[in-house]
């Protein structure tokens, strides 16, 4: 069971990583295009190979239109896609010092309570984000430059938020089971890497 959710979270993280990589490429291509465009407009380029320079400019050599908007939309998806892995590998920052004296049993109960709270919060976040997406569908709002519907970007985020909520519910159940049975279910598998 734990393996299953771990694998699901890893797949989401890798998907988010791919989107992040694509955004990095878009930004770099945009810089190259922008520099090339500026160069083609220089007197040097215009006098050395005027025809070619103009042809390249007309062909659209320049910054990628709306790269800013693509980064924003893609980044939101990536972050939401990263969330399940942090959830399932207990990767959130905590202050442990004041609870280290607690007996193991009390700690287990505390952990279960916290994980239940986390699940509730992530469910609320996913549900509200979904309702935000619906209102963006209704309003027909688009982005400024590319003019794609804003809800497309929301839809990607809703997917990530949904998986995060599901994983959080699993973690809450697992922690509650640990608290009631005393068994260890959640293993900190990626913890050693970081």
């Amino acid at each position: 069971m734990h393996r299953l959710f771990l694998t699901l979270s890893r797949v989401m993280a890798i998907l988010g990583g791919f989107v992040l990589s694509i955004l990095i490429l878009i930004v770099c291509l945009s810089i190259i295009g922008r520099s090339a465009n500026s160069f083609l407009h220089t007197d040097v380029a215009q006098s050395l190979f005027p025809g070619l320079a103009q042809w390249l400019i007309d062909a659209g050599v320049g910054a990628i239109r709306g790269d800013f908007e693509l980064v924003e939309a893609g980044m939101a998806f990536s972050i939401f896609a990263f969330l399940p892995l942090t959830q399932v590998t207990v990767g959130h920052a905590t202050v442990d010092i004041f609870t280290s004296w607690m007996p193991e049993r009390a700690l287990r109960i505390l952990r279960a309570l916290i994980e239940v709270l986390f699940a509730v919060v992530l469910i609320v976040i996913a549900v509200q984000l979904f309702s935000g997406m619906q209102s963006k569908i209704r309003s027909g709002q688009t982005t400024l430059l590319l003019q794609f519907p804003v809800w497309w970007a929301y839809a990607g985020s809703v997917l990530g938020a949904g998986v995060a909520a599901v994983v959080a519910v699993y973690m809450a159940l697992a922690r509650v089971a640990e608290a009631t049975t005393g068994r260890s279910i959640v293993t900190d598998e990626l913890g050693a890497e970081h």
Partner: peptide, 8 residues
Amino acid sequence: VVGYTPGR
């Protein structure tokens, strides 16, 4: 600014 929400 109304233009912040294009299309609406």
